[in-house]
């Protein structure tokens, strides 16, 4: 899932600045699961903003709503007749949700309340770890299920750098060397010969936002 972290309160206060009537919009999918932007967190943030503004004698009118998913048009539709009259929309979705909301309501300032941090796994309640950087050309099949892009400090696709140090990465003893992990995993599976396979470097130049259209689907005529 996509994991996020709430922005520092000071930054949130600055972002909201002088606005007097705002709608705080949560998202019920990834950010709800990682406990940062679902219904509950929306209520908590709205309460905090309400009290902070009353304390500074600049009261704010703040309402809250949580939609199923902010990265899905279908679910943004419910907001169409609700945003009027608000000075700004606050959103607790990931960066994709924030942008989709801003695209739908281009006349209204849309302010992110969350820093989107990574695609990761749930290690325990409230504890998440990064596992994927969405590189677009997954090599997990040849790396024994260990992602070298995420787990290696240099994101090396083809074997370790010279700094690999008895299982640790040269940047810190707290950090395992990704390529050491990959070696051990493949060895355990008797697939070590596969480690030699060469993965072409990823194209980092001239990047454009990526698009995926699943087989059997196409863009509607109107958007082509």
């Amino acid at each position: 899932m996509i994991v996020g972290k709430r922005k520092p309160f000071e930054e949130i206060k600055d972002l909201i600045g002088p606005y007097k009537k705002v709608l705080n919009v949560g998202c019920g999918t990834c950010v709800a699961v990682c406990l940062v932007g679902g219904e509950k967190e929306v209520d908590v943030l709205s309460a905090e903003i309400d009290m902070a503004r009353r304390l500074s004698k600049e009261p704010i009118d703040i309402d809250s709503i949580t939609v199923e998913r902010q990265c899905d048009r279908e679910y943004l539709e419910v907001l169409d007749d609700k945003v009027e009259g608000y000075d700004a929309l606050l959103t607790m979705a990931c960066g994709a949700g924030v942008q989709f909301l801003a695209e739908r309501f281009p006349e209204t300032p849309v302010l992110p309340m969350v820093d989107t941090t990574f695609i990761g796994v749930n290690q325990g309640v409230g504890w998440y770890e990064e596992r994927c950087r969405s590189c677009s050309s997954c090599v997990l099949g040849v790396t024994g299920g260990v992602c070298p892009v995420t787990m290696c400090a240099k994101s090396l696709y083809n074997g370790p750098c010279g700094g690999t140090n008895h299982g640790k990465c040269e940047i810190s003893d707290d950090q395992d060397c990704a390529w050491h992990m990959i070696y051990e995993r493949l060895e355990k599976q008797g697939r070590l010969d596969g480690i030699i396979a060469f993965t072409p470097a990823r194209e980092h130049e001239n990047q454009v936002p990526r698009t995926t259209i699943q087989p059997g689907y196409k863009k509607p005529e109107s958007e082509q």
Partner: peptide
């Protein structure tokens, strides 16, 4: 910590 942030 939230009260602290809010100034209470």
């Amino acid at each position: 910590s939230m009260l602290d942030e809010m100034g209470m």
